[in-house]
Design a protein around this nucleic acid. Structure first.
Lengths: 225, 225
DNA sequence: CTTGTATAACTTGTATACTACCATGCCTGC
DNA sequence: GCAGGCATGGTAGTATACAAGTTATACAAG
């Protein structure tokens, strides 16, 4: 597991949470791995309490499974879980972008504009590794423009199930098309064109349709059932 | 605050969580009330740790606000929060019932049938107080029939924002119509009639459209902003 | 009476100690 | 050699102790 440095002003609990989330997404913590509260605490240089609190939070999102008196483990990739996350994302993303089409203001447009421009810049420079975070931020900004930022927050931890499979899937050239999608979505929002916006969201998420069979054959030990 | 008895086999943390949720929904814990980890622990006859863990979980759902070194408070009713919860419920309920129309099996139908029959029975006997739980269970069963039970679970805590306003709104004769809604929804699901099912969900949720202005004028001290 | 200050009594965050339980493996008895 | 029992070490759940910070209050000075 990769241990990031603790930020100033960050509570020990938030620190543990940040490290755990990051390593789960990056698969540095592989599905099925046992994690010990004590061990993690000493690795991070904090006590068991905040580590435990972080683990409990992730267990609520089914990212960690806690077996009392036996141990805690990074959840195996559960296709049902991934499917529910994908379903939820599709359903809320489409509804939220409709809201954004109706209610976005100048400031919101500016934020999205800056984001997409930056994505296009990094893409043109071939710095595609920067795009992952901008991608997430783009969608977050749409939720904020639609005044639905709590929903984004609530769902964000659950979407790690999704992110994790994304990490596992071969890093294809998808990114190119993704940036184009974002540009088109922004234009649709600016035009208030709900129908097109919804279409774009569906098309966009279809790109993340993972070839589960392919991944499963390569890493069967990561999968549940 | 009302202190329920601790169930056998229930962990101290789940106990604290159950008591807190119940009292927040019932408004026995009024919005704005200060809650002390120590005080709550001694009231429940458990230690601070599990109480604290429960409070943290509710804070994640914005039902409690924690101000470090100052105190924790039951969140005031935030119209934006309620609106987001309502929005999320409408969006997911409609999508999930469509799934249920397509994928429900015999067992799922039987569960819903039993539930609605029971609601009709209690209604005919005038025991309307029994209907609140059955109502929630009915919707949960639809999510399960659509294989979206995790989504229900994840959203359930957030929906307390909604339940709490329901409690506060005058107990009208709505219940009558609600039971009828459930019967019609079940029939639509059985018939696989997605269009009607979605219409019914929207109509159903419209009944919970709260007259915020009315409530706010009666209990302004419960509201944020 | 007002204002500033010291202090006491809270708060949550963190650390540590203790408990009950489980899994493993060694060791005994056969 | 093999099977059963028991010790040992590990786990999460819980309890308690300590640290750091805020707030309220009492009180003294002006």
């Amino acid at each position: 597991m990769e241990v990031y440095p603790k930020l100033r002003g960050e509570t020990a609990r938030d620190y543990a949470l940040r490290v755990l989330k990051g390593n789960i997404i990056s698969l540095d913590l592989k599905p099925g791995t046992a994690i010990s509260e004590n061990e993690l605490a000493s690795e991070l240089g904090i006590s068991r309490t905040p580590v435990r609190e972080a683990i409990i939070e992730l267990a609520k999102a089914y990212l960690i499974e806690i077996y009392p008196q036996r141990g805690s483990f990074i959840s195996l990739i559960d296709p049902k879980m991934v499917e529910e996350a994908r379903f939820l994302r599709r359903v809320t993303d489409t509804a939220v972008i409709e809201e954004a089409c109706e209610n976005i203001d100048e400031a919101g447009i500016a934020i999205l504009e800056d984001n997409v421009s930056l994505q296009e810049f990094y893409l043109s420079k071939g710095m595609t590794e920067k795009i992952f975070d901008l991608d997430n931020q783009f969608h977050k900004s749409i939720y904020e423009a639609a005044r639905k930022d709590i929903i984004y927050e609530i769902h964000s931890t659950l979407m790690i199930h999704f992110d994790r499979v994304r990490t596992l899937s071969v890093e294809t050239v998808k990114d190119f098309k993704v940036v184009g999608d974002h540009r088109k979505m922004l234009e649709a929002i600016k035009a208030g064109d709900k129908t097109t916006a919804v279409e774009l969201v569906n098309k966009h998420l279809a790109r993340y349709q993972i070839d589960e069979k392919e991944i499963r054959s390569q890493r069967p030990e990561y999968f549940k059932a």
